[in-house]
């Protein structure tokens, strides 16, 4: 519970006052303020300047992008149109969307009941199953790639994104794990009350637990969406052979090959691929931060 409230505490200005005798010396306080904020500013720049250079290069002319100049001499927004012209980005965008949205939907369908059973039902073997889920979560994706690839090849589903999407409808260990932790934060008394009112497990889950853990659901959905959106290994393995099924990440990786010296176009494509994720973050910043802190402190 504590962690959930912590996340909102991260809002500006709510940092708890600490340190000695702030009132004693206003001047020392001011110096401190300047010192802390200038270091923070330097750190912030360090993180954001690379992105700025990328964006600036995306607007340069072909020729200038090959020079050491940092600022565009003339602006070429047409580079972005060129990117869309040379590569079927909309198709890749569609594939990425299909992968991410279906996987997220499948994850919710399969993880919610499983997390409920692991968090709120008592049955023999629960601890064991939970440990297996955690173990599954920790297996590096490359470990199982050989037997799974063989499996999907026999089902004639390689060359498509289905081998990546379908498993989400059964199992996403990380989401089950995280969702279970979220479900555990709801006090037992609420569930007992629901039961007294005659709710079965399904109704308790849908009417009580889900509404109370909406932020958690939002967080795991975002994680799942982001993970699949950013995934490179999976699409490379299963869809690499079939350009009709490429996702944005996969297409971006081969984009540079086709446009060797045109750093401006490559960077424009990079911006195009980054933008949706950044927009998503801006729209759902709170859920992100809450989810992240929750993994860290509870996980």
């Amino acid at each position: 519970m504590a962690t959930l409230t912590t996340a909102t505490d991260l809002a500006p200005g709510s940092t708890p006052r600490r340190g000695p005798a702030r009132r004693r010396s206003n001047r020392r306080g001011l110096m401190r303020w300047i010192a802390v904020h200038s270091i923070a500013l330097a750190i912030g720049l360090m993180f954001v300047l690379p992105l700025v250079f990328v964006a600036l290069t995306a607007f340069m002319s072909d020729r200038q992008a090959l020079t050491a100049d940092l600022w565009p001499r003339s602006w070429h927004p047409a580079n972005f149109a060129e990117v869309f012209r040379t590569a079927p980005l909309l198709k890749y965008l569609g594939n990425s969307m299909m992968y991410s949205l279906l996987a997220t939907a499948g994850m919710l369908l399969s993880s919610v009941p499983a997390a409920y059973a692991l968090a709120r039902m008592r049955w023999r073997g629960r601890q064991t199953v939970f440990l297996v889920v955690i173990a599954a979560m920790m297996i590096p994706p490359q470990v199982l790639s050989v037997p799974l690839y063989i499996l999907w090849a026999r089902l004639h589903l390689t060359g498509t994104l289905w081998p990546l999407i379908l498993p989400y409808f059964l199992l996403d260990a990380f989401s089950i794990f995280l969702l279970r932790q979220f479900f555990l934060t709801v006090p037992q008394s609420y569930l007992d009350a629901a039961r007294v009112d005659g709710c079965g497990d399904l109704r308790t889950l849908l009417r009580v637990l889900l509404p109370m853990t909406r932020p958690g659901i939002a967080a795991i959905s975002l994680f799942c969406f982001m993970y699949t959106w950013n995934d490179y290994f999976g699409p490379l393995l299963y869809a690499g052979e079939n350009p009709d099924e490429w996702t944005l990440s996969l297409a971006l990786a081969s984009f540079r090959g086709a446009h060797q010296v045109q750093w401006n176009l490559t960077m424009a494509a990079t911006v195009v691929v980054m933008l949706p994720v950044i927009l998503l973050f801006v729209l759902a910043q709170k859920s992100f931060v809450r989810g992240i802190t929750f993994t860290g402190v509870k996980g």
């Binding site: 971006l252 973050f281 801006v282 910043q285 931060v289």
Partner: peptide
């Protein structure tokens, strides 16, 4: 401006690894 700084340092982590 704590919120702003937090956004700045988090942006690179959001970017797809390929990008």
């Amino acid at each position: 401006g704590a919120g702003l700084f937090r956004t700045l340092i988090y942006l690179p982590a959001l970017a797809p690894p390929v990008a």
